[in-house]
Design a protein around this nucleic acid. Structure first.
Lengths: 223, 223
DNA sequence: TAGATTGTTAATCGATTAACAATC
DNA sequence: TAGATTGTTAATCGATTAACAATC
Protein backbone atom coordinates (compact mmCIF):
# COMPACT_ATOMS: atom_id res chain seq x y z
CA UNK A 1 0.00 0.00 0.00
CA UNK A 2 2.66 2.48 0.97
CA UNK A 3 5.23 0.83 -1.29
CA UNK A 4 6.13 3.57 -3.79
CA UNK A 5 7.54 1.07 -6.25
CA UNK A 6 4.21 -0.63 -6.69
CA UNK A 7 3.08 0.38 -10.18
CA UNK A 8 -0.57 -0.16 -9.40
CA UNK A 9 -1.35 0.53 -5.78
CA UNK A 10 -5.09 0.39 -6.34
CA UNK A 11 -4.81 -3.24 -7.29
CA UNK A 12 -3.06 -4.27 -4.09
CA UNK A 13 -5.55 -3.93 -1.27
CA UNK A 14 -2.89 -5.16 1.17
CA UNK A 15 -3.62 -7.57 3.97
CA UNK A 16 -6.29 -6.58 6.45
CA UNK A 17 -4.72 -5.05 9.51
CA UNK A 18 -7.58 -5.54 11.92
CA UNK A 19 -8.78 -8.77 13.46
CA UNK A 20 -9.69 -10.02 9.99
CA UNK A 21 -6.79 -12.39 9.56
CA UNK A 22 -6.97 -15.81 11.14
CA UNK A 23 -4.78 -15.73 14.21
CA UNK A 24 -2.44 -18.69 14.56
CA UNK A 25 -2.82 -20.57 17.81
CA UNK A 26 0.88 -20.09 18.52
CA UNK A 27 0.40 -16.32 18.53
CA UNK A 28 -2.27 -16.61 21.22
CA UNK A 29 -0.02 -18.72 23.41
CA UNK A 30 2.82 -16.24 23.07
CA UNK A 31 0.45 -13.42 23.96
CA UNK A 32 -0.16 -15.18 27.23
CA UNK A 33 3.60 -15.43 27.82
CA UNK A 34 4.08 -11.74 27.04
CA UNK A 35 1.40 -10.95 29.57
CA UNK A 36 3.24 -12.89 32.24
CA UNK A 37 6.53 -11.08 31.57
CA UNK A 38 4.75 -7.74 31.58
CA UNK A 39 3.19 -8.60 34.92
CA UNK A 40 6.66 -9.10 36.39
CA UNK A 41 7.90 -5.84 34.88
CA UNK A 42 4.86 -4.01 36.21
CA UNK A 43 5.60 -5.21 39.73
CA UNK A 44 9.16 -3.96 39.32
CA UNK A 45 7.86 -0.55 38.32
CA UNK A 46 9.33 -0.72 34.82
CA UNK A 47 7.29 1.41 32.47
CA UNK A 48 8.43 0.54 28.97
CA UNK A 49 10.02 -2.33 27.11
CA UNK A 50 11.24 -2.86 23.56
CA UNK A 51 10.27 -5.82 21.39
CA UNK A 52 13.92 -6.90 21.56
CA UNK A 53 14.00 -7.05 25.36
CA UNK A 54 10.60 -8.71 25.59
CA UNK A 55 11.66 -11.27 23.03
CA UNK A 56 14.94 -11.99 24.78
CA UNK A 57 13.17 -12.81 28.03
CA UNK A 58 11.27 -15.56 26.29
CA UNK A 59 13.73 -16.65 23.63
CA UNK A 60 11.78 -15.09 20.76
CA UNK A 61 12.85 -12.96 17.84
CA UNK A 62 11.98 -9.28 18.18
CA UNK A 63 10.23 -9.29 14.81
CA UNK A 64 8.03 -12.05 16.08
CA UNK A 65 7.03 -10.01 19.10
CA UNK A 66 6.13 -7.03 16.94
CA UNK A 67 4.28 -9.12 14.42
CA UNK A 68 2.30 -10.97 17.08
CA UNK A 69 1.16 -7.69 18.60
CA UNK A 70 0.45 -6.14 15.21
CA UNK A 71 -2.29 -8.72 14.64
CA UNK A 72 -4.35 -6.80 17.15
CA UNK A 73 -3.42 -3.17 16.72
CA UNK A 74 -0.64 -0.67 17.27
CA UNK A 75 0.50 -0.71 20.86
CA UNK A 76 4.04 0.59 20.60
CA UNK A 77 5.70 3.94 20.11
CA UNK A 78 8.44 4.07 17.44
CA UNK A 79 11.73 5.06 19.01
CA UNK A 80 10.57 4.09 22.51
CA UNK A 81 8.97 0.72 22.73
CA UNK A 82 5.83 -0.51 24.44
CA UNK A 83 4.29 0.94 27.60
CA UNK A 84 4.28 -1.97 30.02
CA UNK A 85 1.05 -1.49 31.92
CA UNK A 86 -0.90 -0.39 28.89
CA UNK A 87 0.30 -3.30 26.77
CA UNK A 88 -0.55 -5.80 29.48
CA UNK A 89 -4.05 -4.40 29.81
CA UNK A 90 -4.49 -4.66 26.07
CA UNK A 91 -3.29 -8.26 25.98
CA UNK A 92 -5.56 -9.24 28.85
CA UNK A 93 -8.47 -7.68 27.01
CA UNK A 94 -7.55 -9.45 23.78
CA UNK A 95 -7.31 -12.79 25.56
CA UNK A 96 -10.57 -12.07 27.35
CA UNK A 97 -8.98 -12.53 30.75
CA UNK A 98 -9.59 -9.01 31.99
CA UNK A 99 -12.51 -10.33 34.03
CA UNK A 100 -13.43 -13.27 36.24
CA UNK A 101 -14.27 -16.41 34.30
CA UNK A 102 -16.29 -19.15 35.95
CA UNK A 103 -15.05 -22.64 35.33
CA UNK A 104 -16.35 -26.09 36.23
CA UNK A 105 -14.27 -29.12 37.09
CA UNK A 106 -15.55 -32.52 36.07
CA UNK A 107 -13.89 -35.43 37.81
CA UNK A 108 -12.72 -34.96 41.39
CA UNK A 109 -10.06 -37.67 41.59
CA UNK A 110 -6.42 -37.05 42.47
CA UNK A 111 -5.78 -34.75 39.55
CA UNK A 112 -9.13 -33.02 39.95
CA UNK A 113 -8.45 -32.33 43.61
CA UNK A 114 -5.07 -30.87 42.75
CA UNK A 115 -6.72 -28.64 40.19
CA UNK A 116 -9.26 -27.47 42.77
CA UNK A 117 -6.45 -26.48 45.09
CA UNK A 118 -4.13 -24.99 42.50
CA UNK A 119 -4.08 -21.27 43.14
CA UNK A 120 -2.50 -20.42 39.80
CA UNK A 121 -5.96 -20.33 38.30
CA UNK A 122 -7.50 -17.79 40.61
CA UNK A 123 -4.50 -15.54 40.09
CA UNK A 124 -5.32 -15.43 36.38
CA UNK A 125 -8.98 -14.74 37.02
CA UNK A 126 -10.28 -18.26 36.60
CA UNK A 127 -12.68 -19.28 39.34
CA UNK A 128 -13.58 -22.92 39.73
CA UNK A 129 -17.09 -22.39 40.98
CA UNK A 130 -18.52 -25.91 40.79
CA UNK A 131 -17.33 -29.49 40.42
CA UNK A 132 -18.90 -32.79 39.40
CA UNK A 133 -18.05 -36.40 39.86
CA UNK A 134 -19.40 -39.74 38.70
CA UNK A 135 -19.52 -41.08 42.24
CA UNK A 136 -22.46 -39.87 44.26
CA UNK A 137 -20.61 -40.21 47.53
CA UNK A 138 -18.31 -37.33 46.60
CA UNK A 139 -21.25 -34.93 46.65
CA UNK A 140 -20.85 -32.15 49.13
CA UNK A 141 -18.14 -29.56 49.54
CA UNK A 142 -14.63 -30.20 48.26
CA UNK A 143 -11.28 -28.47 48.55
CA UNK A 144 -11.43 -24.68 48.46
CA UNK A 145 -15.10 -24.89 49.48
CA UNK A 146 -16.14 -25.77 45.96
CA UNK A 147 -19.52 -27.55 45.80
CA UNK A 148 -19.43 -31.00 44.25
CA UNK A 149 -22.46 -32.48 42.52
CA UNK A 150 -23.19 -35.82 40.96
CA UNK A 151 -22.76 -35.81 37.21
CA UNK A 152 -26.48 -36.28 36.70
CA UNK A 153 -26.93 -32.65 37.73
CA UNK A 154 -24.45 -31.44 35.13
CA UNK A 155 -26.68 -29.43 32.81
CA UNK A 156 -28.73 -27.81 35.54
CA UNK A 157 -25.78 -26.75 37.65
CA UNK A 158 -23.63 -25.48 34.81
CA UNK A 159 -26.47 -23.11 34.06
CA UNK A 160 -27.01 -22.21 37.70
CA UNK A 161 -23.35 -21.35 38.29
CA UNK A 162 -22.91 -19.49 35.01
CA UNK A 163 -20.05 -21.72 33.93
CA UNK A 164 -18.22 -20.60 30.80
CA UNK A 165 -15.82 -23.43 30.37
CA UNK A 166 -14.90 -26.77 31.72
CA UNK A 167 -11.88 -28.74 32.89
CA UNK A 168 -12.33 -32.43 32.23
CA UNK A 169 -10.47 -34.91 34.43
CA UNK A 170 -12.57 -38.05 34.44
CA UNK A 171 -11.59 -41.57 33.44
CA UNK A 172 -11.10 -42.23 29.70
CA UNK A 173 -14.26 -44.33 29.37
CA UNK A 174 -16.54 -41.55 30.59
CA UNK A 175 -14.89 -38.68 28.72
CA UNK A 176 -16.63 -38.77 25.33
CA UNK A 177 -20.11 -39.13 26.80
CA UNK A 178 -19.58 -36.13 29.02
CA UNK A 179 -18.08 -34.14 26.17
CA UNK A 180 -21.27 -34.81 24.19
CA UNK A 181 -23.42 -33.52 27.02
CA UNK A 182 -21.23 -30.46 27.41
CA UNK A 183 -21.43 -29.49 23.77
CA UNK A 184 -25.20 -30.00 23.89
CA UNK A 185 -25.41 -27.44 26.68
CA UNK A 186 -23.45 -24.92 24.63
CA UNK A 187 -20.11 -25.09 26.43
CA UNK A 188 -17.58 -23.90 23.86
CA UNK A 189 -14.22 -24.60 25.50
CA UNK A 190 -12.85 -27.67 27.25
CA UNK A 191 -9.51 -28.11 28.93
CA UNK A 192 -9.09 -31.85 28.58
CA UNK A 193 -6.81 -33.81 30.89
CA UNK A 194 -8.10 -37.18 29.69
CA UNK A 195 -5.80 -39.08 27.31
CA UNK A 196 -8.53 -39.46 24.67
CA UNK A 197 -9.15 -37.56 21.46
CA UNK A 198 -12.54 -36.01 22.05
CA UNK A 199 -14.93 -35.77 19.11
CA UNK A 200 -16.67 -32.41 19.31
CA UNK A 201 -18.35 -30.00 16.87
CA UNK A 202 -15.89 -27.62 15.27
CA UNK A 203 -17.25 -24.63 17.16
CA UNK A 204 -16.07 -26.24 20.41
CA UNK A 205 -12.46 -25.70 21.33
CA UNK A 206 -10.60 -28.49 23.11
CA UNK A 207 -7.10 -28.08 24.50
CA UNK A 208 -5.43 -31.27 25.57
CA UNK A 209 -3.09 -31.45 28.51
CA UNK A 210 -1.62 -34.85 27.97
CA UNK A 211 0.92 -35.81 30.59
CA UNK A 212 1.68 -39.21 29.09
CA UNK A 213 2.61 -37.62 25.79
CA UNK A 214 4.78 -35.04 27.51
CA UNK A 215 6.62 -37.83 29.29
CA UNK A 216 6.99 -40.05 26.24
CA UNK A 217 8.24 -37.26 24.04
CA UNK A 218 10.72 -36.15 26.72
CA UNK A 219 11.98 -39.70 26.91
CA UNK A 220 12.98 -39.54 23.24
CA UNK A 221 15.50 -36.85 24.07
CA UNK A 222 17.01 -38.58 27.10
CA UNK A 223 20.78 -38.46 26.91
CA UNK B 1 16.63 -41.02 -7.08
CA UNK B 2 14.24 -43.48 -8.66
CA UNK B 3 12.63 -40.78 -10.76
CA UNK B 4 13.20 -41.91 -14.34
CA UNK B 5 12.83 -38.37 -15.63
CA UNK B 6 15.82 -37.17 -13.66
CA UNK B 7 18.47 -36.55 -16.32
CA UNK B 8 21.34 -36.92 -13.89
CA UNK B 9 20.54 -39.29 -11.05
CA UNK B 10 24.15 -39.46 -9.86
CA UNK B 11 24.00 -35.79 -9.00
CA UNK B 12 21.02 -36.14 -6.68
CA UNK B 13 22.22 -37.94 -3.55
CA UNK B 14 18.70 -37.65 -2.05
CA UNK B 15 18.02 -36.87 1.56
CA UNK B 16 19.44 -39.23 4.14
CA UNK B 17 16.87 -41.83 5.09
CA UNK B 18 18.31 -42.87 8.43
CA UNK B 19 18.23 -40.94 11.70
CA UNK B 20 20.45 -38.30 10.10
CA UNK B 21 17.78 -35.66 9.64
CA UNK B 22 16.77 -33.53 12.56
CA UNK B 23 13.44 -34.78 13.75
CA UNK B 24 10.82 -32.08 14.37
CA UNK B 25 9.39 -32.07 17.86
CA UNK B 26 5.87 -32.35 16.41
CA UNK B 27 6.80 -35.66 14.82
CA UNK B 28 7.81 -37.09 18.18
CA UNK B 29 4.55 -36.05 19.77
CA UNK B 30 2.55 -37.64 16.97
CA UNK B 31 4.57 -40.82 17.38
CA UNK B 32 3.34 -40.97 20.92
CA UNK B 33 -0.25 -40.55 19.71
CA UNK B 34 0.19 -43.29 17.12
CA UNK B 35 1.45 -45.56 19.85
CA UNK B 36 -1.68 -44.95 21.89
CA UNK B 37 -4.00 -45.74 18.98
CA UNK B 38 -2.01 -48.87 18.20
CA UNK B 39 -2.33 -49.96 21.80
CA UNK B 40 -6.12 -49.79 21.50
CA UNK B 41 -6.07 -51.70 18.22
CA UNK B 42 -3.80 -54.32 19.73
CA UNK B 43 -6.25 -54.91 22.56
CA UNK B 44 -8.99 -55.31 19.97
CA UNK B 45 -6.95 -57.96 18.20
CA UNK B 46 -6.62 -55.89 15.01
CA UNK B 47 -3.43 -56.86 13.21
CA UNK B 48 -2.89 -54.26 10.51
CA UNK B 49 -3.80 -50.65 9.80
CA UNK B 50 -3.26 -48.31 6.86
CA UNK B 51 -1.81 -44.83 7.15
CA UNK B 52 -5.21 -43.50 6.09
CA UNK B 53 -7.07 -45.22 8.93
CA UNK B 54 -4.44 -44.35 11.48
CA UNK B 55 -4.49 -40.74 10.35
CA UNK B 56 -8.29 -40.53 10.47
CA UNK B 57 -8.36 -41.65 14.08
CA UNK B 58 -6.24 -38.66 15.04
CA UNK B 59 -7.29 -36.12 12.44
CA UNK B 60 -4.02 -36.31 10.50
CA UNK B 61 -3.33 -36.58 6.81
CA UNK B 62 -2.23 -40.05 5.67
CA UNK B 63 0.88 -38.64 4.03
CA UNK B 64 1.85 -37.16 7.35
CA UNK B 65 1.56 -40.52 9.05
CA UNK B 66 3.74 -42.18 6.42
CA UNK B 67 6.26 -39.37 6.47
CA UNK B 68 6.52 -39.35 10.25
CA UNK B 69 7.23 -43.06 10.30
CA UNK B 70 9.63 -42.85 7.38
CA UNK B 71 11.94 -40.71 9.49
CA UNK B 72 12.83 -43.85 11.38
CA UNK B 73 12.71 -46.65 8.85
CA UNK B 74 10.36 -48.72 6.74
CA UNK B 75 7.66 -50.28 8.88
CA UNK B 76 4.86 -50.80 6.37
CA UNK B 77 4.09 -53.24 3.60
CA UNK B 78 2.98 -51.68 0.30
CA UNK B 79 -0.52 -52.83 -0.55
CA UNK B 80 -1.27 -53.88 3.02
CA UNK B 81 -0.44 -51.28 5.59
CA UNK B 82 1.36 -51.47 8.92
CA UNK B 83 1.40 -54.48 11.24
CA UNK B 84 -0.10 -53.14 14.47
CA UNK B 85 1.89 -54.91 17.14
CA UNK B 86 5.16 -54.65 15.28
CA UNK B 87 4.73 -50.94 14.59
CA UNK B 88 3.85 -50.23 18.19
CA UNK B 89 6.95 -52.05 19.40
CA UNK B 90 9.04 -50.06 16.99
CA UNK B 91 7.57 -46.75 18.10
CA UNK B 92 8.08 -47.60 21.77
CA UNK B 93 11.68 -48.45 21.00
CA UNK B 94 12.16 -45.22 19.06
CA UNK B 95 10.68 -43.17 21.90
CA UNK B 96 12.80 -45.09 24.40
CA UNK B 97 9.73 -46.13 26.39
CA UNK B 98 10.17 -49.87 25.88
CA UNK B 99 11.56 -50.11 29.40
CA UNK B 100 10.96 -48.77 32.89
CA UNK B 101 12.18 -45.21 33.39
CA UNK B 102 12.80 -43.91 36.88
CA UNK B 103 11.54 -40.43 37.56
CA UNK B 104 11.78 -38.06 40.50
CA UNK B 105 9.16 -35.60 41.63
CA UNK B 106 10.31 -32.33 43.15
CA UNK B 107 7.65 -30.46 45.07
CA UNK B 108 5.00 -32.44 46.92
CA UNK B 109 2.22 -29.87 47.11
CA UNK B 110 -1.27 -30.32 45.74
CA UNK B 111 -0.15 -30.80 42.19
CA UNK B 112 2.81 -32.95 43.19
CA UNK B 113 0.59 -35.23 45.24
CA UNK B 114 -1.76 -35.64 42.31
CA UNK B 115 1.19 -36.53 40.11
CA UNK B 116 2.34 -39.11 42.66
CA UNK B 117 -1.08 -40.74 42.56
CA UNK B 118 -1.68 -40.48 38.82
CA UNK B 119 -1.53 -44.00 37.48
CA UNK B 120 -1.22 -42.91 33.85
CA UNK B 121 2.53 -42.68 34.33
CA UNK B 122 3.12 -46.21 35.54
CA UNK B 123 1.06 -47.52 32.62
CA UNK B 124 3.52 -45.90 30.24
CA UNK B 125 6.51 -47.30 32.09
CA UNK B 126 7.37 -44.21 34.10
CA UNK B 127 8.05 -44.98 37.75
CA UNK B 128 8.16 -42.14 40.24
CA UNK B 129 10.70 -43.66 42.56
CA UNK B 130 11.56 -40.73 44.80
CA UNK B 131 10.22 -37.30 45.70
CA UNK B 132 11.62 -34.16 47.28
CA UNK B 133 10.18 -31.15 49.00
CA UNK B 134 11.46 -27.89 50.40
CA UNK B 135 9.73 -28.44 53.72
CA UNK B 136 11.49 -30.86 55.99
CA UNK B 137 8.29 -31.92 57.70
CA UNK B 138 7.12 -33.66 54.53
CA UNK B 139 9.98 -36.12 54.80
CA UNK B 140 8.81 -39.70 55.06
CA UNK B 141 6.61 -41.79 52.82
CA UNK B 142 4.08 -40.14 50.56
CA UNK B 143 1.26 -41.32 48.33
CA UNK B 144 1.91 -44.59 46.51
CA UNK B 145 4.60 -45.39 49.08
CA UNK B 146 7.07 -43.04 47.41
CA UNK B 147 9.84 -41.89 49.76
CA UNK B 148 10.04 -38.13 50.23
CA UNK B 149 13.30 -36.40 51.13
CA UNK B 150 14.23 -32.86 51.93
CA UNK B 151 15.61 -30.98 48.95
CA UNK B 152 19.04 -30.82 50.56
CA UNK B 153 19.44 -34.51 49.79
CA UNK B 154 18.65 -33.98 46.11
CA UNK B 155 21.96 -34.89 44.47
CA UNK B 156 22.67 -37.89 46.67
CA UNK B 157 19.23 -39.45 46.32
CA UNK B 158 18.88 -38.87 42.58
CA UNK B 159 22.02 -40.91 42.22
CA UNK B 160 20.89 -43.53 44.73
CA UNK B 161 17.54 -44.07 43.03
CA UNK B 162 18.94 -44.03 39.50
CA UNK B 163 16.67 -41.20 38.42
CA UNK B 164 16.72 -40.41 34.71
CA UNK B 165 14.45 -37.44 34.65
CA UNK B 166 12.55 -35.09 36.83
CA UNK B 167 9.11 -33.57 37.23
CA UNK B 168 9.32 -30.12 38.76
CA UNK B 169 6.32 -28.81 40.69
CA UNK B 170 7.74 -26.37 43.22
CA UNK B 171 6.90 -22.72 43.72
CA UNK B 172 8.14 -20.26 41.07
CA UNK B 173 10.76 -18.70 43.34
CA UNK B 174 12.55 -21.99 43.95
CA UNK B 175 12.37 -23.35 40.41
CA UNK B 176 15.46 -21.84 38.77
CA UNK B 177 17.76 -22.71 41.65
CA UNK B 178 16.67 -26.31 41.60
CA UNK B 179 16.96 -26.44 37.82
CA UNK B 180 20.58 -25.33 38.19
CA UNK B 181 21.30 -28.09 40.68
CA UNK B 182 19.61 -30.65 38.44
CA UNK B 183 21.63 -29.74 35.38
CA UNK B 184 24.79 -29.85 37.48
CA UNK B 185 24.01 -33.46 38.40
CA UNK B 186 23.61 -34.39 34.75
CA UNK B 187 19.80 -34.67 34.58
CA UNK B 188 18.97 -34.08 30.92
CA UNK B 189 15.19 -33.86 30.89
CA UNK B 190 12.76 -31.88 33.01
CA UNK B 191 8.98 -31.88 32.89
CA UNK B 192 8.29 -28.44 34.25
CA UNK B 193 4.95 -27.56 35.84
CA UNK B 194 6.20 -24.25 37.19
CA UNK B 195 5.07 -21.13 35.29
CA UNK B 196 8.63 -19.90 34.81
CA UNK B 197 10.92 -20.03 31.81
CA UNK B 198 13.83 -22.12 33.09
CA UNK B 199 17.32 -21.22 31.93
CA UNK B 200 19.20 -24.43 31.26
CA UNK B 201 22.15 -25.55 29.09
CA UNK B 202 21.05 -26.51 25.59
CA UNK B 203 21.75 -30.18 26.19
CA UNK B 204 18.98 -30.22 28.80
CA UNK B 205 15.45 -30.65 27.50
CA UNK B 206 12.64 -28.87 29.29
CA UNK B 207 8.99 -29.44 28.47
CA UNK B 208 6.60 -26.99 30.03
CA UNK B 209 3.14 -27.96 31.18
CA UNK B 210 1.65 -24.56 31.75
CA UNK B 211 -1.92 -24.66 32.97
CA UNK B 212 -2.32 -20.91 33.16
CA UNK B 213 -1.38 -20.54 29.51
CA UNK B 214 -3.73 -23.32 28.49
CA UNK B 215 -6.52 -21.53 30.30
CA UNK B 216 -5.72 -18.08 28.96
CA UNK B 217 -5.43 -19.24 25.38
CA UNK B 218 -8.69 -21.19 25.67
CA UNK B 219 -10.34 -18.07 26.94
CA UNK B 220 -9.46 -16.27 23.71
CA UNK B 221 -11.70 -18.66 21.81
CA UNK B 222 -14.67 -18.44 24.18
CA UNK B 223 -17.85 -17.94 22.18
C1' DT C 1 -2.53 -60.44 -12.25
C1' DA C 2 -5.32 -56.40 -10.37
C1' DG C 3 -5.90 -53.67 -6.42
C1' DA C 4 -4.15 -51.48 -2.60
C1' DT C 5 -0.97 -48.97 -0.08
C1' DT C 6 3.67 -47.81 0.92
C1' DG C 7 7.88 -44.65 0.73
C1' DT C 8 9.42 -40.54 -1.21
C1' DT C 9 9.78 -36.48 -4.13
C1' DA C 10 7.75 -32.22 -5.48
C1' DA C 11 4.33 -28.63 -4.58
C1' DT C 12 1.95 -26.02 -1.32
C1' DC C 13 1.13 -23.73 2.64
C1' DG C 14 2.07 -21.17 6.74
C1' DA C 15 5.04 -19.34 10.16
C1' DT C 16 9.40 -17.10 11.34
C1' DT C 17 12.93 -13.85 10.45
C1' DA C 18 15.26 -10.01 8.04
C1' DA C 19 15.13 -5.60 6.34
C1' DC C 20 13.79 -0.98 6.22
C1' DA C 21 10.82 3.19 5.63
C1' DA C 22 8.04 5.66 8.89
C1' DT C 23 7.98 7.92 13.09
C1' DC C 24 8.60 9.41 17.74
C1' DT D 1 18.03 17.00 15.00
C1' DA D 2 20.10 12.22 15.75
C1' DG D 3 19.10 7.88 17.62
C1' DA D 4 16.06 4.37 18.56
C1' DT D 5 12.41 1.41 17.70
C1' DT D 6 8.07 0.51 15.68
C1' DG D 7 4.89 -1.56 12.04
C1' DT D 8 5.01 -3.96 7.88
C1' DT D 9 6.60 -6.01 3.58
C1' DA D 10 9.58 -9.29 1.47
C1' DA D 11 12.61 -13.27 2.00
C1' DT D 12 13.50 -17.42 4.23
C1' DC D 13 12.66 -21.44 6.43
C1' DG D 14 10.22 -25.50 7.76
C1' DA D 15 6.27 -28.36 7.96
C1' DT D 16 2.20 -30.31 5.69
C1' DT D 17 -0.03 -32.21 1.76
C1' DA D 18 -0.40 -34.05 -2.99
C1' DA D 19 1.08 -37.05 -6.29
C1' DC D 20 2.91 -41.15 -8.01
C1' DA D 21 6.32 -44.86 -9.09
C1' DA D 22 7.55 -48.93 -6.59
C1' DT D 23 5.94 -52.96 -4.54
C1' DC D 24 3.41 -56.43 -2.14
Amino acid sequence: MSNAKNPDPEQSPSQPTGADRRIPEAVIRRLSLYSRVLQVLERQGIEKISSTELGERLGFNSAQVRKDLAYFGQFGVPGFGYPVQDLRNNIKRILGTDREIRVALIGVGHLGTALLSYDGFRKQGFLISVAFDLFENLEGVGAMRVPIFHINQLERRLEEFGVEFVMLAVNPEAAQGIADRLTATGISAILNFVPVRLRVPSKVRVHDVDLAIEMESLSFYLK
